[in-house]
Design a protein around this nucleic acid. Structure first.
Lengths: 336, 336
DNA sequence: CTTGACTCCCAAAACGTTTTGGAGAATCTT
DNA sequence: AAGATTCTCCAAAACGTTTTGGGAGTCAAG
């Protein structure tokens, strides 16, 4: 409603003094400060954001690019993460803007527009690819950013990721220890770092156990992709007795394939992400999840520290994966 | 990188001319315009967003408040909607910022901060309550906004909503026509308009058919809430033979309750939202969905028209509900 | 009385754009 | 040839804040 000029006029003070009083500077007497604060409260004064941003040369904004690739965006709890991140950024005076990728434009174009138009102070990147051009661009521009997921970039950059390799290796070894020998992998698109990482974990475990690594099928990281990939594996002459799925959504699709092929209660299966939905599938889906609470807060913290100039090496978080045992991984390994 | 002043200097032109050339005004000669455009392209000039916003007195931003109430945010396709909305807003030069509600603050505080700080040109409200204080506040401030879901506000306001009353009435009547007489309703929290609306639809159908309306249990709009509410209904001496659930997530929880109580294949069930997941439950979940493609685009369009000053009455969209028949609604109505 | 330190305040200069209200030159009209 | 019109361009004034670099007063010490 009111601006600084009007407020100052009504108080018989200068703009400077009012501004400094509200910001709590020491060179305004306590009495004046109080008087100013009261008046500001009374008229509901809020500094004009655009003016402040212009003067301070900060956008007070962080953008997160939303990949629109396969018609679907990350796991469903992704929005919870964004929400948590936005909440903690807001506490530091930053707002989170979402930057979807329109048809015909690349994610790179979006980054460029936001960065070169000085619309943001930092960026948050999700669904990283092994070779991610967005990362390279932002590094070349020197703008702070954090990724959800690692990349194969040569320069280090801030990220938060789960140790998919270790998690999928452990899950596979556990199946092996339970007697399984034909352990299949329902893989996500290998250009994504997370999918490749998880696939490598499965492969490493299989090789350690001296098992062949041909029971691997790739699909889109959605129910349908998991369904199709699982069907492909189940058509093999020598069927898998256990399936390690790159995501819970794929695992849920795979469960449907199992139901169609063998009634659904013969083959062990495990997913990753710990979707709430997994507790309600039939059988209840055993899964894995990244450890760590309040992921959104961690992203916000890394972003703020990156904006503060901390070096990338200190802003990398690799979280362990833990099992969430429900029921779907307990099917016996039938004798060959 | 460069600003208008530097660009003008390098071209030997005034700031004014360069600005107008880039904006395509007719009072710049075609030759000069071309020359300016080329130079701007070459140095990758983008107008400074903060400066433009200050001068134009527009924030170029729209905020959407994210309710953090029950630890979960709307149906999973909500993010797709946001993404689509953001994409279409971006085409008009507006960005979408997400405004989560921090602990200890009300959604109203958030609205106030955004509106009074002139941080946004409009707002998008989701999860409306029957009596929604955010709506009243925004109306009193006269700032454009659109809601996802109606309210019981006396003044009309722009909204997009599904006709939950008609949808749930139709679903209930269909069960009645199939011979069901004990039709239960798994209801969402009644302070939300959508939940109340759907409940009213079920109730209206029951009364039309001369049936009692006591088979109604309320729960949180999540799997767990549906699970508990369904259990409650199944414990009744006279069990329902069909369940109409306020959301798919609740229906999926209810499916689990059915499995526990009767093996899961005796009672008909239908949800609402058409979650992708529903095709992969067991049995595949029959559901309903709001008609209309590209919901995000519709929201964007309404927002832009509201900003443009169109009256609220012309900015209200009530969409019909259609059935998505899979399998879970086909259980026979057993004789009483 | 001068000096220095301290307290409280303020004028003015940014920040980078858009827009207003012309100015000068060229072209057209009569 | 004088006036009217059109074509290009530009200086300067915003927009509302933060920050710089003091300027008056007051008070105590020298």
């Amino acid at each position: 409603m009111a601006n600084l000029k009007q407020l100052a006029q009504s108080l018989g003070l200068s703009i400077t003094t009012v501004s400094r009083a509200l910001d709590g500077y020491a060179d305004v007497s306590a009495a004046t400060r109080e008087r100013v604060r009261e008046a500001a409260d009374k008229v509901g004064y809020r500094p004009n954001a655009s003016a402040r941003r212009l003067r301070r040369q900060r956008a007070e904004l962080v953008a997160v690019t939303l990949p629109s690739d396969p018609g679907h965006i990350g796991p469903p709890h992704f929005l919870d993460m964004l929400s948590g991140c936005a909440e903690h950024l807001a506490a530091a005076g930053l707002n989170l803007v979402i930057a979807p990728v329109p048809r015909g434009e690349s994610e790179l174009d979006i980054c460029r527009r936001f960065v070169d138009g000085r619309r943001v102070d930092a960026m948050l990147l999700v669904r990283t690819k092994r070779k991610d051009e967005r990362v390279e661009f932002l590094q070349s521009r020197g703008i702070p950013f954090v990724t959800n997921g690692r990349t194969e970039s040569l320069l280090p950059h801030p990220y938060i990721d789960g140790d998919g390799f270790a998690g999928f290796r452990a899950a596979t070894l556990r199946f092996h220890a339970a007697g399984h020998r034909r352990i299949g992998h329902v893989a996500g698109p290998q250009e994504y770092y997370f999918a490749h990482d998880r696939c490598r974990g499965w492969r490493a475990a299989m090789e350690e156990c001296g098992l062949a690594t041909d029971l691997c099928a790739e699909g889109a990281p959605l129910e349908q992709g998991g369904y199709l990939a699982a069907l492909e594996l189940l058509r093999q002459p020598s069927r898998p007795t256990a399936l390690v799925c790159a995501t819970d959504e794929m695992a849920i699709g795979a469960l449907r394939a199992l139901r169609e092929v063998d009634g659904g209660n013969q083959i062990s299966i495990v997913g990753h992400d710990d979707l709430p939905m997994g507790a309600f599938t039939s059988p209840p889906l055993s899964t894995m999840r990244m450890t760590g609470e309040h992921l959104g807060a961690s992203f916000a913290s890394l972003l703020l520290r990156a904006i503060g100039g901390e070096p990338a090496e200190e802003l990398q978080e690799l979280h362990a994966i833990e099992f969430v045992d429900r029921d779907s991984h307990r099917r016996p390994a039938k004798a060959a």
